[in-house]
Design a protein around this nucleic acid. Structure first.
Lengths: 182, 182
DNA sequence: CAAGATACGTCAATATGGCTGACATAAACT
DNA sequence: AGTTTATGTCAGCCATATTGACGTATCTTG
């Protein structure tokens, strides 16, 4: 559509607006490429699930809750709040929907009867598996293109991108398992 | 905090709720580990910027707009809509704020005077650079742990995670530049 | 046992950032 | 002159997040 007024990155600094000053030299030291690749990769990665969720009348929030409840059976509400980093009021609505519609069930804790331990039902498992299958397809396709050793490199990179101070229980499990994966 | 009712992934399938059925065998073929690592890595990655943005009274939406306007000077409004995949009404509010507060300026297109080409001001550049610096610190820290060859593996992985059909102009630039980076 | 802390639920109000639909204007194209 | 395109804007709706307050059951502790 129309002409090419779409310059390459930083190639048109001379055409900057009046108030604009030449870009600082530190610019080259920044990881612009990876920053942008992460943006697009994550956008498309969650896009897979978003599209499918529409058919269920659910949003991203429902996916996140279902995923972690399925993966870590018996998760407490408080743990879920830590992982998702949202307030219990926000979680409340989404969780209530998933309970009402039979995707998740609650069980009173054995040791502490105040706790409501969360478990995915068969219906919930089916949903999570369907979404994970979509995302796995994308991941497998990407991993194919970087060779067998690449997968471990990617895992190590992603792990190193995650904050290690004040980890929640899910992260403790993930990092605790270390390389004892699969 | 209290007892350990936090099972390892899939280790507590026997304690599932009544309606729950044993997990299907396909479970093992799914990339649970990478799915979760991507979630946490991206959460913390954008968290760096989120925290800083609060001081400016801005949100993630402002960051995304500022980033791409800075990186691709002279971006048209329509291009920005393609990249961000939002409607012009949504963009409108955010963009107006950034214009009013002097982070971005508009310039009428030379060839087509209907177009409003977008440019970051010095003020805008400073903001983008500050946020990119935070994120670069995290990325550099992660790359250090996977060796020099790892960075290119990560780039190739992320590129392969992105949809190639119907790419917007920014993606065309990114993929067009191929390995002619930096 | 009584007091306090904890786990969870919920009501109410508010903000952000998406969305659709409709309509307006200016400029380009035919 | 008429149509299409690029942009802006008004009005309203929805999803998801927030804070603050309050209630209730249950565990812990003096």
């Amino acid at each position: 559509m129309a002409d090419i007024n779409f310059s390459s990155p930083q190639a048109a600094s001379d055409s900057r607006a009046a108030e604009s000053r030449p870009s600082p030299a530190r610019d080259g030291a920044l990881r612009w490429d990876i920053i942008e690749l992460l943006f697009f990769a994550y956008r498309d990665f969650v896009g897979d699930a978003d599209h499918e969720l529409e058919a269920f009348g659910f949003g991203r929030a429902h996916h996140r809750v279902m995923h972690f409840v399925y993966r870590y059976p018996g998760l407490k509400v408080a743990d879920l709040l830590d992982v998702l980093r949202i307030t219990k009021q926000s979680l409340g609505r989404v969780l209530k929907q998933l309970l009402d519609e039979g995707y998740i069930v609650q069980k009173t804790g054995n040791n502490d009867r105040r706790q409501r331990l969360l478990y995915a039902t068969a219906k919930g498992e089916a949903l999570v598996a369907r979404l994970a299958t979509l995302q796995t397809t994308r991941i497998d396709r990407a991993l194919e293109q970087i060779g067998p050793a690449g997968a471990e490199t990617v895992r190590r990179f992603l792990r190193a991108m995650i904050d290690r101070d004040d980890p929640d229980k899910v992260l403790e499990t993930i990092f605790g398992a270390a390389s004892a994966k699969e």
